[in-house]
């Protein structure tokens, strides 16, 4: 998939494709999510490369990275940080937790209890943390990549709707295709390459790029199309309820970032179609089973909405 993107973005895409094989679309979506200042949820089986993808992006963007492995006995303080009494200075000193990082990989988020989950998700939304009456801003940029195992696995606390809404995009990685898997097997563990990856970005470069992505032109014809899609989710019999206005805003922001990653100056219907599964799947529930919508459901929705 070629791109006309500005050079640092093209470099990131190229380098990431060297590490995470055969996942071009997912890499792009993850990068778009970051550029749209959203948080990313990766849902898949263990061992398909979720952590590798997160780690690769953090390194390539030159961002500070920390990883939190969620377990069922974890408390909010474990991720936010605690204040410890300093005897010598007779005062409390705040020791920031792993959340105070530019890229946070929240592994297996659905293994944590709802209390800890909500502490993380509130921090994602507010981009600041309040403990013991003091508000502390989180670093900027602040990008959470959360992974979760499919919720039918044992020992999970599924995230409630309202919390899922905090993630701009949800992607699935899936098994690698034949060629990629062979290359993987021949080349050994890809994680070994990680320390050798050179950053393509400085943290200062990211903010202007995010601003440019948010300024991508959206014509009224495209807004017509976005509204038609949103309307279709609401009137469809397949879903329990339709997409919210916030979801519509997320869709537009993601489509802008996608167009920007593709190197274009305006959003096309193709961009909306490309990000719609990522935006809609975790926000829509099927009326038939109560499960989240799948890619096929969203594709059917797109095909049923004519483009004028």
């Amino acid at each position: 998939m070629p791109t006309n993107a500005p050079s640092p973005i093209a470099d990131v895409l190229a380098a990431a494709n060297q590490v995470v094989l055969g996942k071009d679309v997912q890499i792009r979506l993850a990068l778009s999510c970051l550029l749209a200042r959203g948080h990313l949820l990766i849902e898949d089986l263990p061992g398909v490369g979720k952590t590798t993808l997160a780690h690769t992006l953090a390194r390539l963007l030159g961002l500070q990275f920390s990883r939190i492995q969620f377990t069922s006995d974890m408390l909010p303080a474990d991720i936010i940080g605690v204040s410890i009494f300093n005897r010598e200075k007779t005062e409390f000193k705040f020791l920031p937790g792993p959340l105070f990082s530019q890229v946070v990989l929240a592994d297996e988020i659905n293994r944590a209890t709802p209390k800890t989950q909500s502490a993380l998700l509130e921090a994602m939304e507010e981009r600041q943390v309040t403990t013991e009456g003091e508000t502390r801003p989180l670093p900027d940029p602040f990008f959470v990549i959360a992974t979760q195992n499919p919720s039918h696995q044992i020992g999970t606390f599924p995230l409630p709707e309202s919390q899922l809404d905090r993630f701009l995009l949800r992607i699935e990685l899936g098994y690698p295709d034949h060629h990629a898997e062979r290359a993987l097997l021949e080349g050994g563990g890809r994680r070994d390459q990680l320390p050798a990856l050179a950053a393509c970005f400085t943290p200062e470069q990211l903010a202007p790029l995010q601003q440019q992505a948010a300024a991508i032109h959206v014509s009224s014809a495209l807004l017509d199309y976005v509204q038609a899609l949103i309307e279709a989710t609401r009137s469809s019999q397949n879903f329990i309820h339709g997409l919210s206005p916030r979801a519509a805003l997320s869709l537009l922001a993601a489509a802008r970032a996608w167009a920007f990653v593709d190197g274009r100056k305006n959003v096309l219907p193709e961009d909306v179609q490309a990000v719609l599964p990522g935006v809609a799947c975790h926000r829509l529930r099927l009326a038939s089973s109560g499960n989240h919508a799948r890619l096929e459901d969203i594709t059917a929705l797109i095909h049923a909405t004519p483009l004028n």
Partner: peptide, 9 residues
Amino acid sequence: RAAWEGPLD
């Protein structure tokens, strides 16, 4: 062209 198909696709 399918009705839903964008120009570039």
